[in-house]
């Protein structure tokens, strides 16, 4: 009994300690942001590897998710004779939920795992240590630009996902199933609110971008510097950031659309 309690206590303390280190870690990384203003190329290179390289998977997934929404939505709505509302349904599900959430999940798998593996490998090959000894702070030189780039790339990716998804829904709904084009767009425009839906969606995706990138860079920086340690950290990045995104999504949705 005492042993179990002790284990529970030790595990809890471990989690709290890691959380604490994660916060201190990101605090020092953020302190490196002003210096990045003088060296935008560092950030650009990271926007390239987190954003541009995730582009294909985001666009293709967005298109298919939109098309599936179009098909499923049509089949449900047609029973109520409300297939003209297809545009509303597709756009609202994408802009409010699926765009930010699915993009964040894909982003965690594509860019987050790559970030963890890259930083973890730099740690295990003593590159981070080497930088420290060259008086270059790896938190500012390696972590800060990656963190910033993730936070920049994620909302843009989510917007593209939603936009492409709406087009996918349009192709299926209007092109394939014959929903009236005018009704599709006009009902959508009448029901999607710029402040409640679009802006909230952007806020969500920005928050997810911060969380996913934060977890990814921290896991990489904090990993056990062996090949096994790096691979575990990479797995943890995907699992933890996916869970964090879904949990945070609930909280944000409750705050934004809760009333």
């Amino acid at each position: 009994m005492m042993d179990k309690l002790q284990q529970l206590g030790a595990a809890t303390l471990g989690v709290i300690e890691r959380l604490g280190r994660g916060h201190i870690f990101i605090y020092y990384a953020i302190k490196g942001f002003p210096a990045l203003a003088l060296r935008p190329n560092l950030v650009l290179a990271q926007v390239f590897s987190t954003g541009v390289l995730s582009l294909i998977i985001i666009l293709v997934s967005g298109l298919f998710v939109g098309m599936v929404l179009g098909l499923q939505g049509y089949n449900t709505l047609v029973d109520f004779g409300a297939e003209e509302s297809l545009g509303v349904m597709v756009a609202l599900s994408l802009v409010r939920e699926l765009g930010p959430v699915v993009t964040a999940l894909l982003f965690a798998g594509r860019a987050g795992s790559a970030l963890t593996a890259e930083i973890g490998l730099m740690k295990s090959t003593e590159q981070l240590s080497g930088m420290e000894m060259m008086a270059v702070d790896p938190l500012q030189r390696v972590v800060a630009p990656r963190f910033l780039a993730g936070a920049i790339a994620m909302p843009l990716l989510a917007a593209m996902f939603s936009a492409v998804g709406v087009m996918g829904g349009y192709f299926v709904g209007v092109g394939l199933l014959g929903v009236d084009e005018g009704a599709f767009w006009s009902q959508m425009q009448a029901s999607v609110e710029i402040d409640e839906d679009i802006i909230n969606g952007i806020i969500k995706s920005f928050a997810f971008g911060i969380v996913v990138t934060w977890i990814a860079v921290f896991e990489g920086y904090d990993c056990v510097p062996t090949s096994e340690g790096v691979s575990r950290a990479t797995t943890r990045t995907v699992v933890h950031s996916s869970l964090a995104v879904l949990g945070l999504d609930f909280v944000l949705t409750a705050l934004m659309f809760g009333e």
Binding site: L121, M122, T125, E126, Q127, S129, G130, E132, M133, M134, A135
Partner: peptide
């Protein structure tokens, strides 16, 4: 500042790959 005046050669070289 002090580290700028120290060099360290790691066992692996620790070159940026």
């Amino acid at each position: 500042e002090l580290r700028k005046r120290m060099g360290m050669l790691f066992q692996s070289g620790a070159l940026l790959t």
